[in-house]
């Protein structure tokens, strides 16, 4: 079965500010801001670099942060992708 590939919505206008490992993301389209931890912020930046399925995104994010690829990381990515889809920031990449 083909894995679901995710990407950042092409029309998403995102602006970032980072202090001490905490990130505030401004989604200009909705006018909302989101206070992110470093894991979530890194995952979104990875997704901006290239679309990925959740397992690949977990690996890339964990590698960037020198974290193990474990169930906690996988769950974190799954929850993040679901949330980003709801917010209109990420979507399933066209096949």
């Amino acid at each position: 079965m083909r894995k679901t590939v995710w990407c950042v919505a092409s029309d998403a206008r995102l602006h970032w500010r980072e202090w001490d490992g905490e990130v505030v993301l401004f989604h200009e389209n909705s006018g909302n801001i989101h206070h992110l931890n470093l894991f979530a912020a890194t995952a979104i930046r990875q997704l901006l670099e290239a679309p990925a399925d959740s397992e690949t995104l977990t690996e890339r994010t964990a590698s960037k942060l020198d974290l193990p690829v474990d169930d906690e990381a996988r769950d974190g990515i799954e929850q993040l992708l679901t949330r980003l889809k709801t917010l209109g920031i990420a979507r399933v990449a066209p096949s």
Partner: peptide
Amino acid sequence: FSRAATLSRLVGNAFNFTVLGRPAFECLS
């Protein structure tokens, strides 16, 4: 107090953040 949390709270206390949009985000940052 965390700077990121400060920015979040300032936005939460802004009456017209969504009216001004990005200039407001840059200003508060």
